[in-house]
């Protein structure tokens, strides 16, 4: 029995990490934009839940509001900031870093620097025999799994996804074929931010919500996409699985510090050895 709970915990962490990494990946893979403020969007998602709780709004309404509000912020960011620097990918790192500082501080000004907590809508546990697990955590897993599948469905099965993939592969060709690349960029960016907002909202009851929480998810998210490879969307699954799984299991079995150090070193070695990621094809020239 000792092994099941860490395993379930690990898969729950992996699923959240995949949601975050998918958002980063859509933006990075498509537009080459590194969004350092992604962690802060995730944080804002969680703060929407704090706000809902303090206004006695139902929890489920918060889950709907969070991605919508974060998507709206994403739309603003894209219009006001990102679209001016598409041509300068390295500058996006700096500009979004400035944005992340500003967002963090804005949250401190509104909610204060101290950690907040959000209570889960259901407290009961689910148990079979010796195994017992909080229902809400199972719900997180189901919801994020659903969103991950939905994302894959959108990008692999719908017309929008087809156009988006065309824009990634051959931006100029798709433009000449009449695809509005600007619009595709914009809505992909917004979609990525909404995913981050929802992830933050979902996980809010299980962690302490504070203004510095974004970074702790941003860096593993980035390492996931670099380890997994930026080519196919499925690379994120492998990357987040490797990063999240190792981190989560080593935290239980050894210690959180050792886990983090081991994971980062592992990730750096993998990225160095296979620059195109675990699932990326080796470029043979």
């Amino acid at each position: 029995m000792d092994i099941i709970i860490p395993l379930v915990d690990a898969s729950s962490y992996i699923l959240i990490l995949i949601m975050i990494a998918l958002g980063l990946m859509i933006v990075f893979g498509m537009m080459g934009v590194i969004n350092m403020a992604h962690g802060e969007l995730f944080m804002i998602g969680a703060y929407v839940m704090v706000l809902c709780q303090s206004h006695n709004l139902p929890f489920w309404l918060g889950l709907v509001l969070a991605p919508i509000m974060v998507a709206f912020i994403g739309l603003l960011i894209e219009t006001l900031l990102i679209r001016h620097i598409y041509q300068r990918p390295l500058d996006t790192i700096l500009a979004t870093w400035g944005l992340s500082i500003a967002l963090k501080q804005a949250i401190v000004l509104v909610f204060g620097p101290e950690a907040q907590s959000v209570s889960a809508p259901v407290d009961e546990s689910f148990s079979i025999g010796d195994f017992s697990y909080p229902i809400y955590r199972l719900f997180i897993m189901a919801a994020s799994l659903f969103m991950i599948i939905a994302t894959f469905w959108i990008f692999l099965k719908t017309d929008f996804g087809l156009m988006a993939r065309a824009v990634i592969a051959r931006p100029h060709t798709s433009e000449t074929l009449g695809i509005n690349t600007r619009r595709i960029y914009r809505w992909s960016f917004v979609f990525g931010t909404a995913l981050a907002g929802l992830a933050g909202a979902l996980i809010a009851p299980t962690i302490s919500v504070d203004p510095q929480m974004g970074l702790g998810y941003l860096v593993p998210g980035f390492l996931s996409i670099l380890v997994g490879g930026t080519g196919p969307l499925a690379g994120v699954l492998a990357g987040a699985g490797a990063i999240g799984g190792t981190n989560s299991l080593l935290s239980v079995w050894v210690s959180p510090v050792a886990a983090q150090i081991a994971v980062f070193i592992l990730a750096i070695i993998i990225i160095r050895m296979r620059p195109s990621g675990l699932l990326g094809e080796r470029d043979e020239k």
């Binding site: 620097i85 700096l94 400035g98 992340s100 500082i101 967002l103 000004l109």
Partner: peptide, 15 residues
């Protein structure tokens, strides 16, 4: 508000 201003200043200067 200083950090907020610094963040915005930084964004503006980069762009």
């Amino acid at each position: 508000y200083w950090l907020l201003i610094l963040g915005f200043l930084f964004m503006v200067s980069v762009v």
